[in-house]
Design a protein around this nucleic acid. Structure first.
Length: 110
DNA sequence: AAAGTGACTGACA
DNA sequence: GTGTCAGCCACTT
């Protein structure tokens, strides 16, 4: 099934916003969604349906759930990978899978 | 057409 | 601080 036009538009917008997020900072699905004009779940869907190849060079790991939750923990393997990537940028994650000092590393897109 | 499904959120206990 | 839950709505059976 080919993606809908809306999906492609949102995907392009989301990717553009992701590249504006500096290393060491994170944003949320909700914040991106607000900027793009869709629901948070839609943003999540866009990221979740990206292949490894598409994710190449895309800082998808800088997107977390509201409050700094690593929501990708729901997908086996992905959560661990995201945390590793964040650590590499100096973003600490608690053992409860939450961003440490979330308020200070939060970045508002757009 | 109808029911199922979330890489989500905010509210509430 | 943590855990549940209902609402959400586009997408997928």
């Amino acid at each position: 099934m080919p993606p809908t036009r809306l999906f492609l538009r949102v995907k392009a917008d989301v990717l553009a916003l992701l590249h504006d997020i500096p290393a060491g900072r994170v944003t949320t699905y909700g914040a991106i969604a607000e900027s793009v004009g869709v629901r948070p779940r839609y943003v999540a869907r866009v990221l979740a349906t990206m292949s490894d190849g598409e994710a190449e060079g895309v800082p998808w790991h800088r997107v977390v759930g509201a409050g700094g939750v690593i929501s990708t923990m729901q997908v086996p393997g992905v959560g661990e990978r995201q945390i590793a990537l964040l650590h590499r940028e100096g973003v600490r994650v608690s053992e409860r899978n939450r961003i440490v000092e979330f308020a200070t590393v939060f970045f508002t897109p757009g």
